[in-house]
Design a protein around this nucleic acid. Structure first.
Lengths: 168, 168
DNA sequence: GCCGATCATTTGAGGCCTCATCTATTGAGG
DNA sequence: CCTCAATAGATGAGGCCTCAAATGATCGGC
């Protein structure tokens, strides 16, 4: 029996025909993201012995050579502050980022990529991007663009629904 | 300052203009899923003091009244077996599912929802579905259908890319 | 009957993540 | 000044998750 080539059995199959179409959309979105994420994680792990959260944090820093504060990293990575503390600690330990005290606010820290961190990141980023390109290559360019636009709309929809809930 | 209404700063903004379009598609997909997932988690937590993994596991069982084995749950939830063991243990503890030994294979266990588990799940599922409907209501029905189809295509693309990588 | 491959599941170490709570600092008013 | 609310981060408990290794059961072939 070769499971790899049989029809996939995943979360999506949890919705029966009677279930609402919105639910199936949500489950399919979740399935797609999970599949891609698992793939990217495995790639980073296998080739660079790095995790996705570490990579994501370094990616943010690479785009901000002047550094980012913990809170800014937290917002951009969409995770809690406590979490950023832990990952940053590790990266500091490994010499990939630095924690500097800004002169104007003694509560804060500015996190920056070290030269070694930048080199390490760039090496990973190249391979990472190539892998992502492969993963989505089953869609034509127009399809990818269309998907991109629909996701933008979805993002707005979700944000709006949340805002409405919170204003109750 | 009301952060809820300012432009979102999230993972997606990590990709610069120079970055590849595939990367931006992936980041936007990730952002959408993260937003929806966080929203659903918060809802389950606030209203039912339940986590998403527990809910997902119960959802699978609700659709299979005859029960599922650990390995089947693992496949359907797209998580490792060790993980299913832990969550199942808790649900057994809380009296929401049972672990039964099938007569024909003493290695395996069949997990089933108890009556209390089923009641608990159905109560959550109703609210859950309504919430998901709200989250995606910013898209028209045709848009939702189109997004659904594009995601199906993406799913196939990702699966194909992975299969190719694994056959090396 | 027995052996070895395979399979179902568990275990344990370790990373990620959240929430609630804490400490230190800042900054606006009195 | 001084107080007090708001802010930046850190901490600790607890849940989710993976991987690798271990345990026990099954099954095909001898």
């Amino acid at each position: 029996m070769n499971d790899a080539v049989t029809a996939p059995i995943d979360r999506e199959s949890r919705a029966s025909r009677a279930d609402h179409e919105a639910l199936r959309l949500w489950l399919r979105l979740l399935t797609c993201t999970s599949l891609m994420e698992a793939s990217v994680r495995a790639e980073l792990r296998r080739d660079f012995d790095c995790t996705l959260p570490r990579f994501d944090l370094m990616a943010q820093l690479e785009r901000h050579p002047d550094g980012l504060r913990m809170g800014e990293l937290s917002k951009r990575l969409m995770v809690t502050g406590g979490n950023v503390t832990g990952i940053t600690d590790q990266l500091v330990q490994e010499g990939l980022v630095t924690r500097a005290a800004p002169p104007d606010d003694r509560r804060a820290f500015v996190i920056r990529l070290t030269a070694a961190g930048r080199r390490s990141f760039l090496r990973m980023a190249e391979s990472h991007e190539a892998w992502v390109v492969k993963l989505v290559s089953g869609l034509s360019a127009p399809e990818r663009r269309q998907l991109f636009e629909l996701l933008a709309k979805l993002k707005r929809s979700v944000t709006a629904a949340q805002a409405k809930r919170e204003s109750d």
